[in-house]
């Protein structure tokens, strides 16, 4: 009885594995090596956030602990951000840490964003602290709105070079 169960389970498993391998190969040969979009982790996430977790932990897709609701990381091609997409992706993934740093007026995440945007991080820290409500509360933490408001306050305060 026990053995029968095992055999069935093994058959099921190999069946799934086989199907999956076929799927993968089809995908590969269909797209051709390295062409459009399949390169090194164009971290292509499917429509559901699950896949991104699968792509990142060495781990399970169950027990999900970290996922990103929408897919700005889709802005990667071959694992590298397309130009102009770095800032929105950074804000989306880091918005919680960024809000913390903004409220405190400084921090590693805020400094990282300042560098990406070509701004002075100290000036950016105090500007974002003063405009905390406008950037994070008024926007209801929506990434695109956060970005727009950050751009607005930094340009009004003229703290970014270039």
């Amino acid at each position: 009885m026990k053995i029968a169960q095992l055999v069935i389970a093994a058959l099921l498993v190999s069946g799934v594995a086989h199907a999956q391998k076929k799927g993968l190969l089809a995908e590969m040969s269909g797209q051709g090596y390295g062409s459009a979009g399949c390169g090194l982790g164009s971290i292509v996430m499917g429509s559901d956030g699950n896949q991104i977790l699968a792509a990142t932990t060495n781990g399970t897709s169950g027990n999900q602990t970290f996922g990103i609701s929408t897919g700005t990381l889709n802005c990667q091609q071959d694992g590298i951000f397309k130009s102009g997409k770095e800032v929105p992706a950074f804000i989306e993934v880091n918005k919680v840490a960024l809000a913390n740093d903004a409220a405190r007026g400084e921090g590693e995440t805020l400094a990282g964003l300042a560098n990406l945007m070509g701004c002075d991080s100290q000036a950016m820290g105090s500007t974002m602290q003063k405009n905390y409500n406008k950037i994070f509360v008024d926007t209801n933490m929506q990434p695109a709105a956060i970005e727009a408001n950050i751009h607005e306050v930094v340009s009004k305060n003229n703290i970014c070079g270039a």
């Binding site: 792509a55 990142t56 990381l73 990667q76 694992g79 951000f81 950074f90 993934v93 880091n94």
Partner: peptide, 10 residues
Amino acid sequence: RSIPYYYKVR
């Protein structure tokens, strides 16, 4: 996969 380090940190 190539993934921004900030993603791994978060």
